[in-house]
């Protein structure tokens, strides 16, 4: 929730998050350079930096990609999601340093433009072991740039969350390119089984986590609800909804969050206006539906954020008959007040 844009809306949680992040990156780079200098005394400082930045970016990318599915599988990981964009920007800076040093080291000493040398220096596209792996890294770096450059809320608002999310889902394309860049590049020269095993485990971890989360996510989208003559659909029993929490159901082409609080039932669109977070997985705090992702808040009765904030989500007409919750699938315009259904009436 912001009334004016700043570079970063700092708060205590973000400061702790970023301190841990920066300390972790500095510690990793220090350890990598120190151990590298001991075990590879002939390696130059540039080589150690290229490897250090590259492996740090790769490790951080695996952490970043794990956060989303971990949060879908267990809400205890949600604090990691809160400031994930700073992880992404840090990862881009590490990858940029890796790419920059590599281009200077391997391409800047000739009489050809270094970037042309990256793109056209190697052309054996038909060979796996000699495949031009550097253009793959450059393409991934371009995607990471686009994501880092558009990470501010200004872009989220102006591109709209679905377009912004679609743009940022390019991270999977970047991940694929980076895995190929490493397998066809560094792992062709470094034949130690440990390095290949580490990347293999990382790849398996990311893919298995995503497949598990995708399977869990698919279930609520497959259930359909029968409609009565007045158009209302019978969703669930009141008793199925925990107090100050929601039942989530796919109604009207998207998920609806049906909240129970203070003896009342209200239904709003499950899609947070900020980053399309799942409102139905949040709780009612201080009388307001609170998004589990970044804490954006909405009144359950009208789907509007309290003044002075302006976010609004569509609301749904709802009624309770015989202990069952009925929701009308036609959404009301965002911010429309709807009389909550009283439990027991």
């Amino acid at each position: 929730m912001s009334l004016k844009y700043q570079a970063v809306m700092w708060n205590r949680q973000k400061k702790i998050y970023d301190s841990v992040l920066i300390a972790g990156v500095v510690l990793y780079l220090g350890l990598f350079s120190g151990l590298g200098a001991i075990f590879h005394p002939n390696a130059t400082a540039e080589t150690l930096l290229i490897r250090g930045f590259g492996t740090a970016a790769l490790l951080l990318l695996h952490i970043i990609l794990s956060i989303g599915p971990l949060c879908r599988l267990n809400p205890r990981f949600l604090p990691l999601l809160y400031n994930r964009r700073h992880l992404g920007v840090t990862m881009f800076i590490l990858a940029l340093a890796h790419g920059g040093f590599s281009i200077v080291q391997f391409h800047a000493l000739g009489d050809v433009n270094p970037l042309v040398s990256v793109l056209a220096g190697e052309t054996r596209y038909t060979s796996l072991s000699d495949f031009p792996f550097q253009p793959l890294g450059l393409a991934a770096l371009l995607i990471l740039f686009l994501m880092a450059a558009t990470s501010h809320d200004f872009w989220l608002t102006n591109l709209t969350p679905p377009v912004w999310k679609a743009l940022h889902m390019l991270v999977y394309v970047a991940y694929g390119l980076i895995v190929l860049h490493v397998v066809l590049g560094a792992l062709q020269a470094e034949t130690s089984p440990v390095l290949a095993a580490l990347l293999g485990v990382g790849l398996a971890w990311v893919l298995i986590l995503h497949l598990l989360a995708a399977r869990k996510e698919k279930l609520p989208d497959e259930k359909t609800y029968p409609a009565a003559a007045d158009g209302y659909v019978n969703v669930c029993a009141v008793s199925e909804i925990p107090e100050k929490c929601a039942h989530v159901a796919l109604i009207g082409g998207e998920r609806v969050a049906i909240f129970k609080y203070d003896g009342k039932i209200s239904a709003i669109s499950n899609v947070c206006q900020h980053q399309n977070g799942p409102l139905g997985e949040g709780r009612i705090i201080d009388g307001l539906v609170t998004c589990p992702w970044h804490g954006f808040q909405y009144r359950p009765q009208d789907g509007a954020s309290p003044e002075p904030f302006k976010e609004k989500v569509p609301t749904f007409n709802v009624k309770v008959i015989g202990g069952r919750v009925w929701v009308h699938p036609q959404p009301n315009p965002p911010g429309t007040a709807v009389e909550p259904a009283r439990i027991g009436e």
């Binding site: 912001s2 009334l3 004016k4 844009y5 700043q6 570079a7 970063v8 740039f145 686009l146 880092a148 450059a149 558009t150 501010h152 200004f154 872009w155 608002t157 102006n158």
Partner: peptide, 24 residues
């Protein structure tokens, strides 16, 4: 002009949107 929230933005914000503006 295109986003009223950006009217009272800080200098840091103006700087931070430059790379994204170059791209889009």
């Amino acid at each position: 002009q295109i986003d009223p929230t950006a009217r009272k933005a800080t200098a840091g914000f103006k700087l931070i949107i430059i790379p994204g503006t170059m791209a889009l």
